[in-house]
Design a protein around this nucleic acid. Structure first.
Lengths: 222, 222
DNA sequence: CGCCTTTATCGTCAAGTTGACGTTTAGGTC
DNA sequence: GACCTAAACGTCAACTTGACGATAAAGGCG
């Protein structure tokens, strides 16, 4: 049997929290198909390129960001998902602290952060609605049982900043006192830096950085 | 830019519990490359076939099984993972109750259940060691916070059977009384059928089937 | 039939965790 | 200083967990 050949792409659901809202980076397509529609950034995997390397490259090209959390999400390969021909896309999920709106890439007329609810109302190109929904779902689930919330925060952050991340991703308010107790009493989740932040009114908050723990046990609860 | 084309396959990590051990279905390769080596069952995705459909088809071809739990695991695409040329594989994880050793498929000289520890010592073809490790890891994690343990059990089963699944997958003993309390008191996890099993010595155990709940909250703990 | 063995099921209790909410602390501003 | 704000710490009842005792319901055996 001779193997059927297909195009393979990577697409990125790059999430951040801006002003208390979970946002995704979308690009407006500048080439067919779906010209003018909004889409997740992505592109073809090169002949000698690893999937992870392709995702890293696209991330760098679209945002200039490096060293942010990037994980494989899922692979989408419905036979008719791309009108140009059979294309399988390996979707990735990236999480980043709030960053300036990046420059547009080569294939994209514009790039812009969108609140996820609004992005899903736009009607994205290809099956990117589904990918985005799955990515947001993954992010929500991972905040519960991993220390990934800190991936949305700058290197040093306060407990309040971290709580605002959880509130934005989960879309619900959390009790500041119980949240503080939980994250500071979980060994290895946070490390005190010694610094303090007095940007906000009120008592200055201690600064923390990510601790070594990846899995939270017991998990945080929505 | 013209899209680089690649072969796309699905590979299956089909897990079951046999005599208290977590086992995986392996096939011995009958065609190059890696002739004679053990490998996960799998094959090319057809030109008009969805990824899920390809996984379903391979599962049916290799085991004759249908209607068992099947989920996408991850996608592996290192440029040199297949000596025949660039090949990306979408690995799937399948969980099934104990079943008879299936007949070999077309490309496989034999098919056989292997305890996972032994299977990893064999040195599997391609990157199937890595896929198997990831699949086992996924199964272990999902038992904690989902009701997927029942996917290893027949339609009707006892609490002890379910506990033996957990013990086999996690590789540790659980207290029968606390396990019983946990699974029977979690609303929606199990449904009593009314029947009883007296196959074992001792008091007959009530029979249960899977309840509607998918996510366990709070989770079971190792 | 009683008695033993086996496993299922139920109960108990101390320790730990959660959720709701009060109190104190440490900065700003007027 | 008085007042505002948010951080950080405390309290307490309800619940969950882990360890393990007690009871129930079968079969085997004298």
């Amino acid at each position: 049997m001779t193997a059927p050949l297909m195009a393979v792409t990577v697409d990125l659901a790059i999430l951040t929290v801006r002003s208390g809202e979970l946002c995704v980076l979308l690009v407006r397509r500048g080439v067919p198909p779906f010209v003018g529609d909004w889409a997740l950034p992505g592109g073809y995997v090169l002949p000698d390129e690893d999937l992870r390397a392709a995702a890293d490259r696209e991330l760098r090209e679209e945002t200039g960001l490096t060293d942010i959390h990037l994980e494989q999400l899922a692979t989408y390969g419905a036979p008719d998902r791309d009108p140009r021909g059979r294309t399988v896309t390996v979707a990735h999920l990236a999480l980043t602290p709030d960053a300036p709106t990046p420059a547009a890439g080569t294939d994209a007329a514009e790039a812009q952060w969108w609140p996820v609810a609004g992005a899903l109302d736009l009607g994205l190109a290809f099956d990117h609605d589904e990918i985005l929904r799955d990515g947001v779902e993954r992010a929500r689930a991972k905040l519960e049982y991993s220390s990934l919330g800190a991936a949305f925060c700058p290197p040093e952050f306060t407990v309040s900043q971290l709580r605002e991340v959880y509130e934005a991703v989960w879309g619900e308010r959390l009790d500041p006192r119980n949240f503080h107790r939980k994250v500071t009493k979980t060994p290895g989740f946070l490390e005190e830096t010694g610094g303090a932040s007095s940007a906000e009114p009120g008592r200055p908050a201690k600064l923390y950085r990510r601790g070594p723990v990846e899995q939270l046990n017991p998990p945080l609860t929505r």
